[in-house]
Design a protein around this nucleic acid. Structure first.
Lengths: 356, 356
DNA sequence: CTGAAAGCGCTTACAG
DNA sequence: CTGAAAGCGCTTACAG
């Protein structure tokens, strides 16, 4: 018996023919319609099994003018924050029977346009977009068909009418940084640095705002040298550690832009003979998995990116069911997790050991 | 002027009608055919711009029996190794104009079947699969149409005829662990532990094999208590640190299953008053970003998951061009990166400080 | 409960 | 270089 040519796909027509039924009936079986008798259904299902038939969702979607696909565009998966977010999105979408079309921008507005254009040709039912830094609402709008459900995540868009009827899910960066700063103030710290991040990034600007607000409430005006910038990576942050100690009196604590920067600072302190949580207080932001496992464990602000992914997917799925309706903007609360890295009062600071 | 109903999609027919051309001609323009005169092309392109036409790749794919989509199925994006791999795959696919369909299994064979079935209904041109632990080649084959280009990554499949004509891209776990062990041997260590990982995981088994081979070549038979298992996470590994020191003489060095475990061990040692790279030698595996930035920097085996992602995408793209041909199996070499965490000879071990 | 016909948006020969 | 016709694999009214 010659094997059938691998090229010829088994279609619904083949199943119908083998069962002596019309294609319409088989189609009803495929979609679980109650109009079909159990006996017919069983026959069709057996035949599907026998011939190894695979539903062609693209054809169905074309005919129905529908789609079970959602496009997810993020900065880059090598950032654990986005990786966790993407994992959460994909998990929830998959549970609902949807498929994730993945795109990444590498924080480039140009690549974002290209990647979006390519994804949109697949006619996704919705879009979850974590915009690249500097994204412009007007340029994006030219790509997106009116009526496409869009959820903007994590970063507000620039440009007039930036909200544009799109849904928004953000993180409470201001309040998160404020909580961290207030925690250090409550321990008695007065000279508190804001360490790491680039001032022009919107999330850094928001976190700095929270820091400034908390200090202002305590009647403290930060010295310029308490504000240290660095790329948001461990290595760069470790290298900037010295900038905190250029002038006397030096800060006794630092609110860090994120966990990567905070861990870099902890390493940088170690190299200078200082121990976080013993002679300097450190807080992070993000609660990446390493935060709890590092030594000392890192006090940080939890934003739970995986949960945010679930949230984002749920929001877009709702919107698919009800395309109309006022856009919602939700800002997820940030929670402070107190751990050992900040567990020191200025009065108890042990004197730093001499730098080797 | 009333706005046109948002529901009615602009199609190629609309463009053709507006230009007074046939649909075939417009189609040629869309695909950049040289058969069309420059004037006609310009007119069509202007009209496309004007009406905001978006190519419907699903319809085109249906007609052409082709696809520019590749399915990527991995364990979970919250593992940085897979996140980097996925980033590499997506990057290379996007450059080639393909779109990534993402699926994750959470290391569950059942979810893998479901997720694959859902992705395959979208008729991807190819599949990159990092199989869940315990995946069976026969069960997978029932889902995959014969002739679908498949690249298996990272883990060999179980079951008879497991290769099954599919391409394979693996990591040289055996040689990587051997390199790390030989490095410690060359420094003079004789009591070397293998720390972390679950024995039944295939990558752990392979890394243990390399460790055993290197010891055997040096005429060393490992003591049972040198082999310590743990979940492949920092926290679990830190908790298992004590197991290394239950018996005298204790090991002076450890080859760790991966970087997460190695960093956990470094933290665990610190809690016991021991410093990696000063009174104990530690090596990791994976070269995650933190490895270079931790304190001390971690000696590790580099497998460069992002580069492996590029490689995997390139392999599958080649296979799309040339579906036939013998399957290839490529094992990427592992490289040892020597850093401070292993930079100590047994003769120079400083005596451990007393446990607090 | 089942079937014949039309059509989703595109491309593919084939003729001119 | 351009156009009329058929068809990719499915679903949707509409009849029966």
């Amino acid at each position: 018996m010659p094997t059938p040519p691998a090229s010829s796909r088994v279609t619904l027509t083949d199943i119908a023919a083998a069962c002596g039924l019309s294609r319409a009936t088989v189609s009803l079986v495929l979609r679980g319609s109650p109009l079909v008798s159990p006996r017919t259904r069983a026959r069709v299902e057996a035949e599907i099994q026998r011939q190894g038939y695979v539903y062609h969702r693209g054809a169905a979607n074309l005919r129905r003018k529908a789609s079970n696909t959602v496009a997810l565009v993020i900065n880059d998966l090598s950032n654990p924050f986005f990786a966790e977010f993407a994992a959460g999105v994909d998990e929830t979408l998959a549970e609902a029977g949807h498929v994730t079309l993945l795109g990444s921008t590498g924080e480039s507005v140009e690549r974002q346009q290209t990647v979006l254009a390519s994804l949109l040709e697949h006619a996704p039912a919705g879009l979850i977009l974590s915009p690249a830094e500097g994204s412009d609402a007007d340029r994006l709008r030219t790509l997106l068909r009116p009526g496409l459900p869009v959820l903007v995540f994590n970063r507000e868009l620039e440009g007039r009418d930036a909200r544009n009827g799109w849904d928004y899910l953000g993180l409470d960066n201001v309040r998160g940084a404020r909580l961290a700063t207030e925690h250090l103030l409550a321990l008695g710290h007065r000279r508190i640095a804001f360490f790491g991040g680039h001032r022009d990034s919107s999330s850094c600007a928001q976190r700095r705002r929270g820091y400034h607000e908390a200090l202002a409430d305590a009647g403290i005006v930060p010295e310029p040298h308490w504000l240290v910038e660095s790329a948001p990576t461990r290595l760069e942050a470790a290298g900037q550690t010295g900038a905190l100690f250029l002038r006397d009196p030096a800060p006794t604590a630092a609110v860090c832009y994120n966990d990567a920067v905070a861990l870099g600072l902890v390493a940088g302190l170690a190299r200078r003979g200082r121990r976080a949580g013993e002679d300097f207080a450190v807080t992070g932001f993000d609660d990446i998995p390493e935060a709890a496992a590092s030594f000392p464990p890192l006090t940080t602000v939890s934003v739970d990116p995986r949960a945010r992914g679930h949230e984002a997917a749920t929001m877009i799925l709702q919107r698919l069911d009800a395309p109309a309706g006022a856009p919602f903007a939700h800002v997820s609360p940030a929670r402070l997790l107190c751990r050992a890295s900040s567990d020191v009062r200025p009065a108890d600071l042990s004197p730093p050991r001499a730098t080797p």
